[in-house]
C-alpha cells in the first residue's frame, strides 16, 4: 500500500454548552470523540454516517478549520495541530477542501476568475502574477468549464457548474489531499454523476488523495477505496470498501446498509431490512459503553458498561476494524461485480 499522507490519531472535538446569564459551561457536545485513521497517497477514504454523527466536524478538523480539543493529525510527518498560524498557512497548499453547498461556498460578489485565482493571491509564489489568468483558465478547462467564462459571477451558473468552480479552487494549489464534504449531495442525479466522474478523473490525473464525506452510501461505495462508518462521533467500522459493504461486522453498518433503497424493483420485498428503533441519542449525552447499545438488537450487559475499541474483528479469515464486542460478518447487500464488464 502507498505511503500514508494523513494520519489522524484520537482526534476529539467537544463544544461547550453554555447556559445562563453568566454563560457558564454546563456540558459538552461530543461532536467528534476520538477518531483515528490513516489516509494513503492517491486513495479515497469514504466517511459515511447520518446527520449529527460528526462527519462534517471531522472534515473541518482535518483542515484545522476547527481547533481540536485533543489528538494529533500528522500530515507527511508534520503535526498539523502543533503548527503556528504561518507554518499552517504553508501546509494549506497541500490539503484543501470542497464544500457541500454550491450556493454558499462561492462569494457572490467575486468573479469566477477572482474565486479560482484567490489561492494564488494568498500564496503568491506558486504562480507568477502575469501567468495567473492563464492558470485559472487552465483550471476551469480542467474541471469542464468554459475558460471564457472567467469574468462571470457565481449566480450565473447552475449548481453542478458551481461545484466545479469550487473544485477548481480546491485543486488550484496542487494539493496532495482534498477533503470533500458532501460534494455531490446538493446536486441533481444526472449532474451528480458528472461531478463524481470529474473527481475520479482528477484523482487519476493529479494523484490526489480524497477524504470523501457523505451520507449517501451508494456514492461512497462507488468512489471509495476504503470506508469508515461514523456513529455519534466515533468510527464504528473501518475497512476496505469491499469488506465494509459485503461483510459488515458492526450492527449499525448492517442496519444502515439494509435501509438503503436499491433502484431495482425486482429486489422489492426480497431484501432483508433491519429497522432500527428510536432516534440517534444526543451527542451532548451519549450512552455509556458502546454508543450504539440503545438501538442495537445484539446488545448485552457488557455493551452498556464496556466501550468496544476499534480493533481487528471478524471471523478470523478476513478481518477488518470494527467497534463491536460481538462483531460478526453478515451480508446484507447482494453485490454484483461490474468491474469485469466495463470497457
Amino acid at each position: 500500500m502507498a505511503e500514508v499522507v494523513l494520519e489522524a490519531r484520537d482526534i476529539v472535538k467537544h463544544y461547550p454548552i453554555k447556559t445562563g446569564v453568566l454563560r457558564r459551561t454546563t456540558g459538552w457536545v461530543k461532536a467528534v470523540d476520538g477518531v483515528s485513521f490513516d489516509l494513503h497517497k492517491g486513495e479515497t477514504l469514504g466517511i459515511v454516517g447520518e446527520s449529527g454523527c460528526g462527519k462534517s466536524t471531522l472534515g473541518r478538523m482535518l483542515m484545522r478549520l476547527e481547533e481540536p480539543t485533543s489528538g494529533s493529525l500528522q500530515f507527511d510527518g508534520v503535526d498539523m495541530y502543533a503548527q503556528s498560524t504561518s507554518d499552517m498557512r504553508r501546509l494549506r497548499r497541500d490539503i484543501q477542501i470542497v464544500f457541500q453547498d454550491p450556493y454558499t461556498s462561492l462569494n457572490p460578489r467575486k468573479t469566477v476568475g477572482d474565486i479560482v485565482g484567490e489561492p494564488f493571491d494568498i500564496h503568491p509564489d506558486v504562480v507568477p502574477k502575469q501567468g495567473r489568468r492563464q492558470r485559472v483558465q487552465e483550471l476551469l478547462d480542467l474541471v469542464g468549464l468554459n475558460p471564457e467564462h472567467i469574468n462571470r459571477y457565481p449566480h450565473q451558473f447552475s449548481g453542478g457548474q458551481r461545484q466545479r468552480i469550487g473544485i477548481a479552487r480546491g485543486i488550484a494549489l496542487n494539493p496532495k489531499v482534498l477533503i470533500c464534504d458532501e460534494p455531490v449531495s446538493a446536486l441533481d442525479v444526472s449532474v451528480q454523476a458528472q461531478v463524481v466522474n470529474l473527481m475520479e478523473k482528477l484523482q487519476d490525473e493529479l494523484g490526489l488523495a480524497y477524504v470523501f464525506i457523505a451520507h449517501d452510501l451508494s456514492v461512497v461505495r462507488h468512489i471509495s477505496d476504503r470506508v469508515g462508518v461514523m456513529y455519534l462521533g466515533k468510527l464504528a467500522e473501518l475497512g476496505e470498501e469491499d469488506e465494509v459493504y459485503t461483510r459488515p461486522t458492526h450492527p449499525y453498518t448492517q442496519a444502515l446498509l439494509s435501509a438503503v433503497p436499491v433502484p431495482d424493483p425486482v429486489l422489492r420485498g426480497k431484501r432483508e431490512q433491519i429497522v432500527l428503533e428510536g432516534d440517534v441519542p444526543s451527542p451532548a449525552n451519549p450512552p455509556t459503553g458502546c454508543r450504539f447499545h440503545t438501538r442495537c438488537w445484539k446488545a448485552q450487559d457488557r455493551c452498556t458498561t464496556e466501550e468496544p475499541g476499534l480493533t481487528m474483528r471478524g471471523d478470523g479469515v478476513a478481518e477488518h476494524l470494527s467497534a463491536c464486542h460481538f462483531a460478526e460478518a453478515r451480508a446484507v447487500v447482494e453485490t454484483t461485480d461490474m468491474s469485469d464488464h466495463s470497457g
Binding site: 442525479v189 444526472s190 451528480q192 454523476a193 458528472q194 463524481v196 466522474n197 452510501l217 451508494s218 456514492v219 461505495r221 462507488h222 468512489i223 470498501e241 469491499d242 459493504y245 446498509l257 438503503v260 436499491v262 433502484p263 431495482d264 424493483p265 425486482v266 429486489l267 447487500v333 447482494e334 453485490t335 454484483t336 461485480d337 461490474m338 468491474s339 469485469d340 466495463s342 470497457g343
Partner: peptide, 30 residues
C-alpha cells in the same frame, strides 16, 4: 427499470451509483 424506452430515463438509470454494485462505471448525462 428493466428496459427504459426514453433516452433520459436510460441515462438517469445509468447515472446513479448502486449500493449492490462494485466497480460500476457511471454514465453521466452531459
Amino acid at each position: 427499470y428493466a428496459n427504459p424506452a426514453h433516452p433520459y430515463t436510460e441515462g438517469l438509470l445509468a447515472s446513479i451509483p448502486r449500493l449492490d454494485r462494485k466497480g460500476q462505471e457511471l454514465y453521466a448525462i452531459g
